[in-house]
């Protein structure tokens, strides 16, 4: 599912994978998105991509994840020369100002709150595909 994905969503919540993929399907972009359960797996996956092949054009990170959380993953990405230019958007449940400030300072391009309504979901996904 992660083959040639242009948007990589890192989130431990499988339910959210389904919700998001539904929106991508609505706009016919379901083939552009790939899902992975935590930061460590995401880094491992990115490392397996051969250098001649393209990297994802956007990484979406949840914050609360087991094994490696979002902000740790963000730091790791920004410290690796090969990945540091991939734009990262934080998509979190909590609207914590401190957390938001921290992630932006670490180099995230945006901080978004997970959707509570259909409209919010659509807006978020529409924003994601602008990076493709």
């Amino acid at each position: 599912m992660t083959d040639h994905c242009q948007i990589l969503v890192v989130d431990d919540d499988v339910e959210d994978h389904l919700i998001l993929s539904e929106y991508f399907r609505d706009i016919g972009k379901e083939r552009c998105v790939g899902f992975i359960e935590n930061g460590q797996k995401a880094l491992d996956f990115l490392s397996t991509i051969p250098s001649e092949e393209p990297l994802p054009k956007l990484i979406v990170l949840d914050l609360n994840m087991p094994i490696m959380n979002g902000s740790q993953t963000l730091l790791n990405l920004k410290q690796t020369s090969r990945f540091k230019n991939i734009p990262v958007i934080i998509l979190s449940t909590s609207q914590n100002e401190n957390e938001k400030r921290k992630c932006l300072s670490f180099g995230a391009v945006d901080y978004m709150v997970k959707p509570c309504t259909l409209e919010e979901g659509r807006t978020i996904v529409d924003h994601f595909v602008t990076f493709i």
């Binding site: 919700i19 959707p115 309504t117």
Partner: peptide, 10 residues
């Protein structure tokens, strides 16, 4: 707590 609540809304 917020996570299931968000789903409820959704």
């Amino acid at each position: 707590l917020q996570e299931p609540l968000r789903k409820l809304f959704f």
